[in-house]
């Protein structure tokens, strides 16, 4: 997240993803992304991670990707949550599931708690630089790494990006929306978990495509 640089609206970015995802993909979203994803409409295999433990979305995605190798698992994470569990990038590339796509919606702030700057963004760093998540992802060994600054390019490329051989890391520079609130739970977590496991277990028994 570079201060003053061009940023796409998170809602536009998610709208492009929403249009490009397949019905058999699992999409896990956290914090502001979960809020916006539920506005766009979460599918039956999606996991808006509310309530959550901050930082766990990528590794929940890793577990799902390992258990369900024949489907794509897409995680949309915030930069605050990513920084809280940076080692998960190494955990993911150690296991290296080809079907995992980690999208980082980098707005530079903890948006849902009133937009305080994260330690990775220029506003909170002594030298005013920003942490380079793209370089971090490459250094950790993601097989495919992408960085998008504007919504049109992202919308044009999203299908190709989702089809790349994973583990895939996608950095999206997004703006934050002042005054926005946190996500609300769409229903009792335990019942949603039971239902998701039931759906995925049932679907796993069907012959399906195997992703690279």
């Amino acid at each position: 997240m570079r201060d003053g640089a061009e940023r796409m609206e998170q809602m536009d970015a998610l709208r492009a993803l929403h249009a490009a995802r397949r019905a058999d993909d699992v999409v896990i979203t956290s914090m502001g992304a979960a809020r916006d994803w539920m506005v766009l409409g979460a599918g039956p295999l999606d996991l808006p991670l509310v309530p959550s433990s901050m930082g766990t979305a990528p590794t929940i995605g890793l577990g799902l990707a390992l258990a369900q190798p024949a489907r794509r698992v897409i995680v949309v994470n915030g930069d605050g949550a990513m920084l809280m569990n940076l080692g998960s990038l190494v955990t993911i590339t150690a296991a290296a599931p080809a079907n995992l796509i980690l999208i980082l919606a980098d707005n530079g702030v903890y948006e849902v708690t009133d937009a305080q700057p994260t330690p990775g963004s220029p506003g909170a760093r002594a030298d005013g630089t920003s942490v380079d998540f793209e370089a971090i992802a490459r250094a950790c060994g993601f097989r495919s790494v992408f960085h998008f600054r504007d919504a049109e390019r992202w919308a044009t490329d999203v299908v190709r990006v989702l089809d790349a051989t994973g583990p895939t890391f996608v950095l999206l520079d997004v703006g934050s929306v002042p005054g926005s609130t946190g996500p609300r739970s769409p229903g009792p977590a335990a019942a949603r978990a039971v239902e998701l496991r039931r759906q995925l277990s049932a679907a796993a028994k069907l012959p399906g495509p195997t992703h690279p």
Partner: peptide, 20 residues
């Protein structure tokens, strides 16, 4: 599945469990 810290282990296990 090797994780970098144990907090991640519960999350990886959660994903595995949800995936069957």
């Amino acid at each position: 599945v090797r994780v970098c810290r144990e907090g991640e282990a519960w999350a990886v296990a959660a994903g595995l469990y949800l995936g069957g």
